[in-house]
Write a protein that binds this DNA or RNA. Structure first.
Lengths: 153, 153
DNA sequence: GTGGTTGCAAAGACTTTGCATTGTT
DNA sequence: AACAATGCAAAGTCTTTGCAACCAC
């Protein structure tokens, strides 16, 4: 499924490389956390990740998860997102650029790309005298499944 | 400047009306906070508002400011926003729909409307099977003044 | 052995809440 | 008089940090 250049192993290697380059150390805790993150195919919160990690090694602390996700973000393997629920979520940073569509009923998160919107964002920034450096766009709605469930229920 | 239907006095009246309708009480603190909010022509944070309010009445507490802004939001006079800095900011809710462009250098916040983006957002949601209920879009960049200052400096 | 890392608890930032007191209606 | 509102401090949520013990290099 995943692009061959971006397998979990590749990303794990990228993380290890980052440690080496920065003269940081490899530890069992970091390995566990990174593998757990790479195994999760979703927009995972620190709490969720912490729970996954604890299953593999109950002695790992919350702070280490936070610190490791910070490292993963720095080396470009993970990207931090902030949706409405107020806690950070992490996703793989190696996908191409995209934005998110979130179901307000079940919390499902769908990714989409819409180059026409991107282009209009550029135009808009320029029109206002800004040099665009980034954006945040989230669409909120009700997904098909939740609408069906409502009608049925 | 402001639309005649949306003067500060009108909005103040709307707030008072809300209190009456909900059988809540008018107090000097609420009046002070609401007037300070209506007088501020910007996307004001609770801390900034608290400082303004303290100048008018040093005995007002932080909690009362939070509680009053909640009320103002409920009655549709204020709208709560969350930008990157992690603290809530409030703006007038009576403007027409718009999104924000934020200077990463000086923090300036500019409002814009772009119906073509809105329309593409609708299309995108539909294409993904969602019924759109809302969105959050912020563009980040460097404003003209900050770019000039950089070149000069 | 040196210096980064960990886990825990404590602290921070922002916001909400409990409660005795005060103020509105 | 009844009951909501206030101010303060305490608690809550998410995240970061200080520090002694620990471990990779």
């Amino acid at each position: 499924m995943t692009d061959a250049k971006h397998t979990a192993d590749d990303r794990f290697a990228r993380f290890k490389e980052h440690l080496r380059a920065q003269r940081l150390k490899s530890t069992a805790q970091r390995d566990t956390i990174v593998r757990a993150f790479l195994a999760s195919q979703r927009h995972i919160s620190v709490e969720e990740l912490y729970n996954d990690v604890r299953r593999m090694n109950p002695h790992i602390g919350y702070a280490t998860v936070y610190r490791t996700m910070k490292l993963l973000t720095e080396c470009g393997v993970a990207a931090e997102r902030h949706f409405r629920d107020g806690e950070a979520r992490y996703e793989s940073a190696e996908k191409r650029h995209h934005d998110h569509l979130i179901c307000e009923s079940c919390g499902k998160i769908v990714e989409f790309e819409e180059p026409r919107i991107e282009s209009l964002q550029q135009d808009t920034a320029k029109r206002c005298g800004f040099q665009l450096t980034g954006h945040k766009m989230e669409l909120y709605g009700i997904c098909r499944e939740c609408r069906r469930a409502r009608q049925a229920g």
